[in-house]
Amino acid sequence: MSSPAGQGGAASLTVENLVAGYGEVIALNGVTITAAAGSITAVLGANGAGKTTLLRAISGMVRPRGGRVVLDGTDRAGRGPEDMARAGIAHVPEGQGVIAELTVEENLRIGMMSWPGIAPRRAERAAALAQAYERFGLLADRRRKLASTLSGGERQMLVIARALVARPRVLLLDEPSLGLAPKIMTQVMDMVVRLSKENGITVVLVEQNARGALSIADQGVVLNLGRVVAAAEAKALASDVALRHHYLGF
């Protein structure tokens, strides 16, 4: 997978003292995390811990009230989602990633909208689509079908494929296994690992399934009520019985 034109390959992502919220509610209160280039970081915690808000603040969907979002040394906090996408951050939001009214191929082409320049060359577009179909063969068979006709697993595959077409350096995945059958969930998790290890993409993964997320992550961050209560290597978190009992539910 090539990196975005004009950008480097893998990128490190650092969030420092991030404060964000909705109206009078503070959902993130001084959150700091560091994701090394090409690593997988699992963000865990109970409902309302601030996991989704963290991804939304990184991708620009929520404007941070304080703190920094540093991508490869450049603070991009406060930029809109369009700018973040163009900087190489792909955000796959929970349960709403597919545009159901468009075909599978059109959904994939949406991923090219963050490419630099106004009109990428036809050959470049075709190559990116071919690469996506090669990786996700099932989508090739359905390229002319409306995305609304896909199953839950196929939709998840499509949003991840589209995120890859965007040639991201950082991939933010919000509950990618939500609502999927266990077998499909395993495939999705395997896919996340491949993306990170083979393509050098930095992945920040929000998951309710803490055990599954920690099994593939390099490091984990546990949030509670908008604050980081633990941050360590994934294996260390998974073996911390007290932490698992209090915050992770397994």
Binding site: M61, E82, I110
Partner: peptide, 14 residues
């Protein structure tokens, strides 16, 4: 069309 159908995804796609 993308912006009309799903502005959130459209913005996240650049």
């Amino acid at each position: 069309r993308a912006a009309a159908f799903n502005a959130t995804v459209a913005r996240l796609s650049g």
